[in-house]
Structures are given as C-alpha cells and as structure tokens.
Design a protein around this nucleic acid. Structure first.
Length: 863
RNA sequence: GGGCAAUUAGCUCAAUGGCUAGAGCACCUCGUUUACACCGAGGGGGUUAUAGGUUCGAGUCCUAUAUUGCCCACCA
C-alpha cells in the first residue's frame, strides 16, 4: 500500500479533477439537498473587468468555509455567484485599453459601439474570472450565476428607481457635486477620497470700492476667484464690523461684489475673510444659496477656464493659477503666501483631482417623508437585526447612517444601465416620464418624440440591490427560500460603498434585512504591511500561489491568525508553512494506510475498541476537538477553530499518538480519528481532504456531503487525558535530560522503575531501556511515576542543583499565590465553583511536585 | 476637527475576565528511529506600550497618555 501513496501531496495534480468531481455531483446546487434548514450566502460580485486578487481569495475562503460547514451539517446551502459590471471602473479600464491598443477614445467609437465592446469585454473577463474562482475551491452554484446587467436582475433594480420616484424619494436638481474631469462624470461622496497634501495658502488683497483700503482673503485655490460673487466674514468678527454694506472690487474681473456676513466662517483661519465662489466650492455654494448670490461657472467639465473667466478662458486650471498669481503680483495684490496642508479630493477610481461643479443630477433623498432610508437602516442596526463581525463596525455604520447626505446616483458615463427617465421633445425636461420600457407616446401631448436621459446609474445603486435581485424578488422560489440570507462576507473597504447600501435598499424594497450576519474581512497586505498594488509590483498572485503550494495552503493562510475587520499580511514563507501542514496531513494518511492492508476509515467506535491509555486519550481529545471546533465555527470564529484543529492534528495525533501507534497498533482507533479529522478539516482544506477520503474509501460518497461529526461525549475522558499528560511530561523530562547532556538518540539509556504502566511507550519515546534496579542514577519523576536513569557519571551535580533550586523556587511561589487565593474569602464567595475546584487541584499538584523535587534534589546530593 | 482600531517573544500573529500568556517563522543544539527533512526532539527569548482604576482575579473591562494605522468631515 505504501508504495502506492507518494510521499508528498502534489496539489496541482489533483485539484482540477477534484473540483470537477464536486461540480459534476450537482451538490453545489441546493436543489439537490433535502433539508428544511437553509443557508445562503450571496457572493460579492467581483468587478467583471480584471482578475482575481488575494482580497477576493480571502473573502471567498471565509464564505466557502462557512458554506461547506453548513452543507456538511446537512443544510440546503446556496453560495450564489455573480459578476458586477462595475460602471466607472470598467469604463476606466476599457478606455485605457483602447487607448493603449488602438490609440482611440470612447468618443471615437460612439456610445453604442463603446457599450457593445465593453459588454463583450466584461463577459469575456467574467468567463476568465470564473475559472479563477473555481481554483480557490469555492463551492458556488454556477448554474445560477448572474451578471448585474442580466435583464431579469437589472429590471428589478430599475423597478426600485420607479418605486422610489413614486414614493417621492427621487429628485433631479442643479446642485454642487463632485466632478471627475478625467472620468467626465459626477461622483457620490463616498467615491471621493481625501488626501492630505502639502499646498499653499494665498493671501490676496481685494480693493474696497471708493476706498484705498483692501480686504485680504485667504484661499488655496486662487483660480476660482474669477467666479467670486462675494466676500464673507463672520458677523462676530470685530475686525470687519465696519465693512457692513460695503462693496469689494474683484481684481482681474473688476466685478463689484458684496461683503456678506455668515456664521459658518471661521474667524481664526487665514484672515477671517473668505472669497465666495458658489459655483466651485460646496460650502460657498451653500452660502451662495442662503444669500442669493449669483453662481458664475468659470471652470468647465474638462477643468478648463470658461469664457466667463475673461482672458484666462481656455487655460487649464494649473496654468490659469500661475497666470492669475503673476498678474495679481504685478498689481501688488498678493499679500503673502504660506505653506499649508490641504485636503485634496481625488477620484476613488482614477485618482484625478475632483472639481466641485454645479450640475444637474439625479439624487436619492435619503430622508424622505414617506420612507427614510437613513432612519430605517439606523433602526435595523440599532435593533441588532444584523449580527456584525467585528461588532464595533456596527457603531461605525450607525455613525455613517446618521450623517448620511442625499445620494447622487447619476453618472455621465456610458457604461452601465441608463436611468429610466424619458423626455418629450415638446413638453420639455420638466415633465419627465419614468418608465422602464420606452413609452410609445407622451402621456401629456401624445407626442412620439421621446428620448431617454443619457445618464447612467451609480454602480452601487444596482449592486446595492444584489441580494434580492439575484434571488428573484418577490415571487421566485429562491427568494422565498433564502431571503433574508444567512451570511454576507465583504472587505472592510466596502463598508460604506456596498454593505450600507444593501441594508438600505434591502429594507426599503423587501422590508427585511438582506442578511442576518455581516462578516468583514481585513485587507490583504504585503510583508511590510503595504497595500498590494500593480504599480508597486508587490502583489502576490493567488493563482501562482495555488499553482505552487496548492489552494488548500492558500486558503489556510488567508484565515490563520486573523480577526474580522483587521488587515492581514501575506507572503510566501507563510504559505509554505501550510503547504507543509497539508503534507503532514497527507502523511498521517500515508502512515495509517501503510499500517495494515485492510486499514479503514471508521465512523463510529464502541468503548471496547478503545484499549490502551493512549487510545482513550486520543479518542477523548478528538471528541473534544469536535466540540470546540464546532463551537468556534458557530460563533464565526474561524481562526480559533483552525487553531484547535492544527494543535490536535499536528501535536496530539501526529507527534504523539502515531508514535505510540507504532508500538500498540489499534487501527480501529486510528481509523476513527482519521475519519474525524478529514471531516473537520474539509471546510478549510477541501481538496486534500476530499482526495484522501476518496482514495481511502472508494465506495463512499464524496466527503463534501458527508455529515459533520458530532462529539460523542461518552468518549471524553478527562481522567485518562490527565493520566496521559503525566506520561507525556515524564517523557519530555527524559528528553530534556538527554538534550542537556547531549546524549544522542541512538544511545539507549538504561533505566529502572517500580511498577510502571506504559513502560514500552516510555522506552520508545524516551529512548530508554528498563532493566535491573539501578542503584546510583538520576531520578526523574512525575506524579506517581519515578524513573532512575543510569547516567550518574554524566551528571553535572552543580548544574542540576541549580535547575532544581530554580524549579523549587518557582513552585514555592505558585503555592504561595494559590494558597493566598484559596484563603481569600471573597474569592471563595464570588468565583465559580469550577474555578475554585481547579485551584484546589492545582495547589495539591504543586505541593506534590514540590515534594518530589525536593526528594530528587536530596537524591542528587548523595551522588 | 471627530470617530475607530492597533500596540503581546527579533518578525507575523493568537489567547471566550480564571490552568505558570501561546503558535509559526527566524535563531541555537542534537538527530535521518521503516508517515513526513515540506521532518522530529530539546532550548533561549515576555515588566502584554505607559500610568492609574474596577475586580476575589485583568493581556482581556474602565479612564488618561504616547505611538502607529484607518475612516469620516464644507477651515476656505
């Protein structure tokens, strides 16, 4: 048998085959499973424009572990896959591509052709990415896979817009918005990043009308002055009190602008006087509205100065800034320039500087009368309708919802679903018609010339509805079966982009939360804690790692020692460790099946098959591991579950039990333990466990659909565990002595002892041989075991004495602490009984140990 | 400016208020004993960032402080 099993498990040889087996079995599809209990996890649809990275892999691993665990518990499990058209991002990617490959822009292609090409591109990428997702081993039901632009999914998302419009939650308006000049579109607040950068604060003197005096304003963006329509100061600011009703002359433009008073102006920043440019600054826009100031647009959508900018018209803003500053300096109107840290706004997708512009856009009123997205979401979160991991992210979300502003949902990009609004040529834009299908006639004038609003939706508007659009709200079976879903796993970076929107829209549309558990993964970083990125070239390619170390090893590294919401560092050495562990598991299997010709995996074991102390111990330990690992998985604590299993498999089973098994073969016990660990490990390492299970048991069904083990509490034997621990300790002590006196393993030490259980085990693992009573030797003891080793001549008495003294001091210290604790009435009164009991046992153990240490010391002194 | 998190061995990270705070990597010593050198045995290495507090008991809870990171926000 052993010759047939190779020494190492070569993951890349088997993984594809195993995945095909799973897929072919049809068990990824919940329809094949009969159960009342349902478990659904809608997978976050990756952007259909690139390839898989470690961030995806880490999320998928978490989802798949839970999914496989629940499937093994016999539940109807649905991991629902899909792809996202990813509006702006895909358009940016594709524009770069055609620019690089064909030297053209989207305008060269025209809207229709561009849309068609990018659609094909996304479908192509989706197919490619699907293959990558399978490599990770995710047990998703591909027969259901959806794309955000699939008609049945999309129409549900558009219906939400129609419903919102009816409910008075939608409005179209000219407001100041975030404009990305490169993407040529409006952006919502969350799509804008703020980056602290070094900048300058310019102090510019504005002459006062009919006076030789000036008012000095401080600004970081002098070029916007071309559009100034006021200068504002705080009404409490005494320095400017005399300027009430006065007029300033805007330099370069020679425009008369009023000096106004507004409480929003900070007195201690700059000069306390602020130039007001309603068309190009959010705060100024608000002030402008309140004071009814004109809005003069001097910067256009390409970040150039408009005609209204006079002689600077047509210049790029950087260029204009230089020219304006030079001209002002010539007029002696620049008072000073200071270094100043500024908060630069950049586009989340392309990193271009954002221009605040006034523009006509579609907005969702998040706090409308009929239905408040904001309040309902807050209510649901506060009521704990969603269990959030980590818990504190709930608080972050609450805060975010309470500060939520209206959501700009229109984008001026071409890629994505168009807003279902139609304009009649005759009746004008004011009388728009909301309809998913193109209306035949204008309901007002019966005119037939109707055109659709050219804007497309914010991509999060459709992906934010993903849980119920995929499941087929409101009538389809999947929706009825699986909504609200059990689990959602997503990166912490998508908290506001996506998770919040799913909650908001899910509640609005279905009245229910979209998921009962929300699990956040951290970001994957490199060895130095830096974010992985293509430009830095520090990315670790998941597919390369899978090829080299196997998917199981990669999965393990992505969940080991992790805490929800906290970032993880990934690098090759770490992955190696888990490849090694996979090999370890493989070799446990290899050893077991070389043990005898008819070695079998055994599901149930009866008491009388458990023979020796070691058997009792390992059987007890494995049941304990089942208990604990299951508990950890139930509480969504994957990393802890994994830790428990690693410790059991590597230490208890491989390093101890297997060595003992070589002496006192009990294939029933080993077969039983192996069967359990294959099942326990399956959700974590599905490939290697499936491979072993299949090879070991060709007649059985797949491991994937075997029942998750239930601990047999009758087999948990704390007394046997304790006794075995003593045995372990004495062996460790012998090894310790061997090591400190450099006795080679090949050298067998003569030893003697009275009435010894498990003599053979001590002989093999401690490499000693029991025989005639040894008169002069060194004593090793643990509890009721005492062994004399015939190495008196090797012993450095002084050194040993020191060791004993140290240990005795340590024990005395512990005894003192414990005695004090047990003498404390408060402790006895308030600590749980179990703890008190434990402490009593501990104390007596310490005392026993101390006694034996003292004896040993005495013994040593007679040498 | 506000909020959140982190700070534990040289490094990466665990630890559910209660067993002498644990792993892996790295390091040192020894070893190929017929599952595994992708291995085994042993070892060194900790004032759990600092200062207080609550508690019978604190790495864990509370309050400050420091450092780092992240997020949010209309100081131009």
């Amino acid at each position: 048998m052993i010759k047939e099993i190779p020494k190492t498990y070569e993951a890349n040889k088997y993984e594809d085959e195993i995945y095909k087996l799973w897929e072919g079995s049809g068990f990824f599809n919940p329809d094949r499973i009969k159960s009342k209990k349902k478990y659904c996890n809608i997978l976050p649809p990756p952007n259909a424009n690139g390839e898989l990275h470690l961030g995806h892999a880490s999320g998928y691993t978490v989802m798949d572990i839970f999914g496989r665990y629940h499937r093994m518990k016999g539940e109807k499990v649905l991991l629902y896959p899909g792809k996202d058209h990813a509006g702006i991002q895909s358009q940016v990617v594709y524009e770069k591509k055609i620019k690089a490959e064909r030297g053209i822009s989207r305008y060269d292609l025209g809207r229709e052709k561009f849309y068609k090409e990018i659609y094909d591109f996304c479908i192509d990428r989706s197919n490619y990415m699907r293959a990558q997702e399978k490599k990770i081993g995710i047990s998703a039901d591909w027969s259901r896979e959806k794309f955000t632009l699939d008609p049945e999914v999309l129409s549900k998302a558009l219906e939400t817009f129609v419903k919102m419009e009816k409910d008075g939650m939608i409005y179209r308006g000219e407001r100041i918005i975030n404009w990305c000049p490169r993407c040529a579109t409006a952006l919502s607040d969350v799509e804008v990043l703020h980056k602290k950068t070094a900048g300058k604060l310019y102090y510019i003197k504005y002459p006062l009308k009919d006076s030789k005096k000036f008012i000095t304003v401080a600004t970081t963006r002098p070029e916007t002055m071309l559009g100034d329509t006021a200068v504002a100061v705080n009404p409490k600011d005494k320095r400017y009190a005399s300027l009430a009703g006065k007029i300033a002359i805007l330099p370069l433009q020679n425009r008369e602008i009023p000096i106004i008073f507004d409480r929003k102006i900070e007195m201690d920043f700059g000069t306390g006087a602020v130039k007001i440019t309603p068309a190009h600054d959010p705060l100024d826009w608000q002030i402008g509205k309140e004071h009814k100031l004109p809005e003069i647009q001097v910067i256009n959508e390409k970040a150039e100065i408009t005609k209204l900018g006079g002689k600077y018209a047509g210049q790029k803003i950087d260029e204009a800034r230089e020219n304006i500053l030079r001209d002002l300096a010539e007029l002696d109107l620049v008072e000073k320039i200071e270094e100043n840290e500024i908060n630069k706004s950049i586009c989340e997708r392309c990193k271009e500087t954002i221009e605040p512009l006034i523009s006509k856009q579609w907005f969702v009123n998040v706090d409308a009368k009929k239905y408040s997205l904001k309040k309902e979401s807050l209510k649901a979160i506060k009521a704990g309708k969603i269990e959030i991991y980590p818990k504190n992210f709930g608080k972050i979300m609450e805060q975010w919802f309470s500060n939520l502003h209206d959501w700009c949902i229109s984008r001026q990009i071409w890629w994505g679903p168009q807003i279902p609004v139609w304009y009649c040529e005759k009746c004008g834009e004011e009388n728009y018609i909301v309809s998913i299908e193109k209306p035949k006639k204008c309901p007002k004038c019966k005119g037939e010339k109707l055109t659709q609003d050219p804007d497309t939706f914010d991509t999060w508007f459709s992906s934010g509805q993903w849980p119920y659009t995929t499941l087929g709200y409101p009538k389809e079976k999947d929706y009825k079966n699986f909504y609200s879903t059990e689990m959602m796993v997503t990166g912490r970076d998508l908290l506001f982009f996506w998770a919040s929107k799913m909650i908001m829209l899910g509640l609005y549309r279905t009245g229910k939360v979209p998921f009962k558990n929300l699990f956040f993964t951290g970001l994957v970083r490199d060895k130095d804690g830096l974010k992985m990125s293509k430009s830095k070239g520090n990315g670790v390619d998941p597919l390369q790692m899978i090829e080299k170390y196997g998917a199981d090893a990669l999965r393990m590294i992505l969940i080991t020692d992790t805490t929800p919401g906290l970032d993880i560092r990934v690098y090759e050495e770490k992955i190696e460790k888990y490849r090694n562990f996979v090999t370890k598991l493989w070799n446990i299997y290899r050893y077991s099946f070389s043990s005898s010709d008819n070695f079998k995996l055994i599901e149930k074991i009866s008491g009388h098959d458990v023979k020796s102390l070691a058997d009792q111990w390992i059987v007890s330990r494995v049941n304990q591991a089942i208990l604990e690992a299951s508990r950890m998985l139930e509480s969504k604590n994957i990393a802890m579950a994994e830790n428990i299993l690693i410790k059991f498999t590597w230490d208890d089973l491989a390093n101890w039990y297997l060595e003992i098994h070589k002496l006192e073969k009990n294939d029933k016990v080993l077969g039983y333990v192996l069967e359990k660990i294959l099942k326990l490990w399956h959700p974590f390492m599905p490939f290697v466990t499936e491979k072993i299970y299949g090879d070991a048991n060709r007649k059985a069904k797949m491991l994937m659909v075997q029942k998750w083990p239930v601990a047999d509490k009758k087999l948990i034997d704390k007394k046997a565990e304790k006794e075995f621990q003593n045995l372990q300790e004495i062996i460790v002590k012998i090894r310790n002595i061997r090591s400190s006196y450099r006795i080679a393993p090949s050298e067998i030490i003569s030893a003697s002892s009275q009435k010894l259980k498990n003599q053979e085990i001590i002989e093999k693992l401690g490499r000693v041989k029991f025989g005639e009573k040894i008169k002069q030797g060194i004593n090793v003891s643990e509890k009721n075991i005492r062994i004399i080793l015939d190495i008196a001549e090797l012993i450095d008495v002084e050194k040993e004495k020191k060791n004993f003294d140290k240990e005795i001091a340590n024990l005395e210290n512990l005894i003192a602490k414990n005695s004090a604790l047990l003498a404390n009435k408060n402790f006895l009164a308030s600590a749980p009984k179990e703890i008190v009991e434990n402490n009593k046992i501990k104390l007596s153990e310490y005392k026993e140990k101390l006694k034996s240490q003292k004896e040993l010391l005495e013994n040593l002194q007679t040498l």
